[in-house]
């Protein structure tokens, strides 16, 4: 038995549902830190950035599930729905902090979404996640049919790229960190590209 098979057998005993509860801990911890001084003198931006970055990190894990299975045989597919929904939840919280704690002013929120490209891109990324979150259940897979459902969920790639580009555009000066995120996301999306077969057979 290969190592991957042993890992998969071990994982088969681990349920996915606790992720929904465990996933609440990081944002709760960030909020607690923000309320008690752990996020520094200006906790609003810090909380906003932590949530956004964490969402991107979890989204990268989501995107890594398929290549990991292809290349190593380790199968994390059953955890992917929970991680995807958590990503949506974190992005939603990130947006909420921006709306309620950061910008605060309703007229300015709309102006920002329309006028500021990095915010427009972030908003598009979030909006594209809504149908994915809504259809992240077995009933939707049955109703849409697996083929349509899979096509719809390929929007994840678009969302991930938009999220990473949004991060790059927020940075001041030349900074490596957001570019590293973008590089990882692009590499993971690239693993999905289907290259034409070596030779076209007539």
């Amino acid at each position: 038995m290969t190592a991957a098979q042993r890992i998969n057998i071990g994982l088969s005993k681990v349920p996915a549902w606790p992720l929904y509860i465990l996933g609440l801990i990081p944002p709760a911890w960030f909020l607690y830190q923000g309320l008690t001084g752990g996020l520094g003198a200006e906790p609003i931006k810090a909380l906003e950035h932590k949530l956004g970055e964490f969402a991107l990190q979890v989204l990268i894990v989501v995107l890594a599930v398929t290549p990991l299975r292809t290349w190593t045989g380790i199968n994390l597919t059953k955890f992917r729905r929970a991680l995807g929904l958590l990503t949506f939840f974190y992005v939603f919280l990130h947006l909420l902090v921006w709306l309620v704690l950061d910008v605060q002013i309703l007229s300015q929120i709309w102006a920002d979404i329309v006028k500021r490209p990095y915010i427009t891109i972030g908003m598009v990324g979030f909006v594209l996640m809504i149908p994915l979150a809504v259809t992240s259940n077995n009933l939707s897979i049955r109703k849409l049919g697996p083929k349509t459902w899979r096509r719809l969920h390929q929007l994840t790639y678009v969302t991930a790229v938009l999220g990473a580009v949004h991060f790059v555009m927020v940075a001041k000066g030349f900074q490596f960190e957001p570019l590293i995120y973008l590089g990882i996301v692009l590499a993971l999306v690239a693993t999905r590209l289907k290259f034409p077969a070596k030779r076209a057979v007539a």
Binding site: L47, L101, Q108
Partner: peptide
């Protein structure tokens, strides 16, 4: 005159915590 990425019309005073108003 706005910064291209954000408005300069308001500001947040440091020290007001998580619910500080602009």
């Amino acid at each position: 005159v706005d910064h291209p990425r954000w408005s300069q019309a308001t500001e947040r005073k440091i020290g007001g915590g998580l619910f500080s108003k602009r």
